[in-house]
Amino acid sequence: MAAEQNERGAAVETAARALLQNAGLQWRASNVRFRGGELDLVMYDREAASLVFVEVRYRRSAQFGGGAASIDASKRRKLVRAAQLYLNQYPALANSPCRFDVVEASGEPPRLNWIRDAFRADDC
């Protein structure tokens, strides 16, 4: 069952990446892990000249709220911390505008919903 969930998660992340790239964002990295947090996708939005940290959330059903609803304050803090650590690795990006997006997926086959600017670092 865990292998099936991992495969589904990877497929949803791949679909999310394709959605974002088709919308004009450039891919920079996937599954960047740091102690205490992980960034699912790191993209660059040329139009907004912004680095975009994307959390991808899959729910079999949106009955109890979509994927975005599952990103609580603790998870947002972890994502912000992971983004800070990512920026520390790339000093040239340290002063880049950034935003946090969410791509939520639900159902079978998954339907994707891209939420731009889902939360801000100063909300955490």
Rank of each mutant, 00 (worst) to 15 (best):
E104S: 12
F53D: 07
G24N: 04
Q26L: 05
L87R: 15
S61M: 09
L87N: 13
A48G: 04
R99S: 08
L85G: 02
L25P: 02
A29H: 10
R60P: 02
R46S: 10
D101C: 10
N95S: 14
E13R: 00
L20H: 07
N88W: 04
P110M: 04
R81T: 10
L112N: 09
R76W: 05
V56I: 09
R77H: 05
S96R: 14
R116A: 11
A118S: 11
G37P: 02
R120S: 08
F34M: 10
S106T: 09
N95I: 00
D101K: 13
T14W: 05
A15M: 06
N88R: 15
R57M: 07
M43R: 11
R60K: 12
F119W: 08
N31Y: 09
L87K: 13
V102M: 13
A73L: 13
A48I: 01
V102H: 11
R28M: 10
E108A: 14
F53S: 12
L112D: 01
T14I: 06
Y44G: 02
S50H: 06
T14R: 15
A29W: 00
S96H: 15
G65T: 04
G37D: 06
L85C: 02
A15H: 01
W27N: 05
Q89S: 13
S61H: 11
